[in-house]
Design a protein around this nucleic acid. Sequence first.
DNA 1: AAACATGATTTACT
DNA 2: AGTAAATCATGTTT
Length: 443
Amino acid sequence: MDEQARIMQALGGVSLAGHSIQGGMALPPPHGHDGIDDGRKQDIGDILHQIMTITDQSLDEAQAKKHGLNCHRMKPALFSVLCEIKEKTGLSIRGAQEEDPPDPQLMRLDNMLLAEGVSGPEKGGGSAAAAAAAAASGGASDNSIEHSDYRAKLTQIRQIYHTELEKYEQACNEFTTHVMNLLREQSRTRPISPKEIERMVGIIHRKFSSIQMQLKQSTCEAVMILRSRFLDARRKRRNFSKQATEILNEYFYSHLSNPYPSEEAKEELAKKCSITVSQVEHRADSAPQSVSNWFGNKRIRYKKNIGKFQEEANLYAAKTAVTAAHAVAAAVQNSQTNSPTTPNSGSSGSFNLPNSGDMFLSMQSLNGDSYQGAQVGANVQSQVDTLRHVISQTAGYSEALGGNTMYSPHGLDANGGWHDTTTPSAVISPTEGPGSVHSDTSN
DNA sequence: AAACATGATTTACT
DNA sequence: AGTAAATCATGTTT
């Protein structure tokens, strides 16, 4: 609060310099030239002397003298003289002022504080809300804990900010009224126009708002630091929940021939996953982004070492194969059936993979009767993926279904299912004979 | 603590 | 704009 004191002092200086009786516009010393009426002159000189020494004296003394002066018979005359002089110099003083540029820096700070929820309306009572949020999200506690920690700190900052701001506001008002009282008081001895008072108030406010700006600036800094410490820890990754991984893997392995979910599919997957995961909230697009990351990583890592993913692939393939088989069966029996087992969107309907195309056709021929074109086709396709995979694991069945085309464990990439074909069949052959493949598929 | 797993970021390409 | 590939940085397992 040194600053404050300094400013006050500065303000005091301004007010004195501009208007005080001991300012530069003091009349020349009362010696003057040889006058016509020396007694009168002496009188005036006396008064001026008294005026000029007022400030050097104690308050009581000054008060007394002021009173004396106010009642002096010469007072009206002197006052009018002062008015006159002021009139002449007043214009020059006033001209330079009166423009109010909305300081861009200040606006920037304000916007930022508003955006960070520091200066905005109190949302939900700080720690209570944080606690509530933590309680509400139940399982995913680690994230919430961190988050509530962040919010607690933010609340702290906001409290400090607001109390300080209030303090400044109060001080400003106090000081303003003080100065105004002073001016009003002085207006009895010297002419002070309302404009001047206004200007003075303006000056005071400007000074105080510059102090406020400092406050805002340091608050912003604090918030930024807090952010970088907590939320902005973008690098600080958080593993997906088991459930989310399940969903994603399911999609991946059931779309192995084309594991590129469309935007919509991503959103849907994100909805399914990120809700349970409570993955980085705020920034609405982060969830689909995460899905994209996941698929990107998955694709590259899968391709890089297919062997490593065998087990997983089997698992998910078998998993979905059940539903797939059911769905296919249903489709065969009832052409109207539109099984919603897999969340694929129609967009993936068109492939240019000869391999899967064959299979697709064969499955279609299986259906025999009429089907609903693309939609059913797409569903079947995704199921075919999983079926084929399962089939490829069981040596016997691949022949049984005449699937010799899909010799490689993942006939899909054998043909460059997605982009390149880095040694498709070289890696793993369906040697391991896990009898684990569900016999459901045989139907 | 080392090794591995994994989500995110960066870079370059199309 | 969307990916692949390389890389980073952290989480998890050993």
